[in-house]
Amino acid sequence: MSTLESTVDKAASTVVPLHPLLARRWSSRAFDPDHEVTDEQLTALLEAARWAPSASNTQPWRFAVTRRGTTEHAMVLDTLAGGNQTWARDASALVVVAARTTGTDGAAQPWAVYDAGQAVAHLSVQAQAEGLAVHQMGGFDRDRLTTVLAAADVTPLVVVAVGLRDEPARLAEPFAQRETAERVRLSVGELLLPVRPQEGG
Rank of each mutant, 00 (worst) to 15 (best):
Q85V: 12
T102D: 00
E72T: 15
G82V: 15
D78T: 10
A151K: 09
Y114D: 08
G117D: 02
P110W: 01
A121I: 13
L77V: 09
T101K: 00
H122A: 13
N84C: 10
T102H: 03
D141R: 03
D141F: 01
A108G: 05
V76M: 06
A129M: 09
V95N: 02
T70P: 10
T79P: 08
T70V: 08
A133Q: 01
A107T: 13
D78N: 15
Q109I: 00
A112L: 00
A112H: 00
T79C: 12
W87I: 07
F140W: 09
V97F: 10
P110A: 05
A151W: 12
T70Q: 14
A151D: 12
A107K: 09
A119N: 04
M137C: 10
H122P: 06
Q126F: 04
A88M: 08
T101Q: 01
G103I: 01
G83I: 06
W111Q: 03
L77I: 10
A98F: 04
G131D: 12
T104D: 11
W111A: 01
E72K: 15
A108H: 03
A88T: 06
L123R: 06
A107Q: 12
L132E: 03
A129G: 13
G139M: 10
A150M: 08
T146M: 08
T79S: 11
G117L: 01
A74T: 07
D78H: 13
A116F: 01
T70A: 13
Q126V: 04
G82D: 13
M137L: 12
G103A: 07
V76C: 07
V96M: 09
D105Q: 04
T70H: 13
Q85A: 08
R100V: 01
S124D: 15
D115R: 00
T70N: 13
L132I: 06
V95K: 02
T102F: 00
H73V: 11
M137R: 10
R100I: 01
Q126N: 08
G103M: 02
A93T: 02
V148L: 06
V96Q: 04
H135V: 12
A133Y: 01
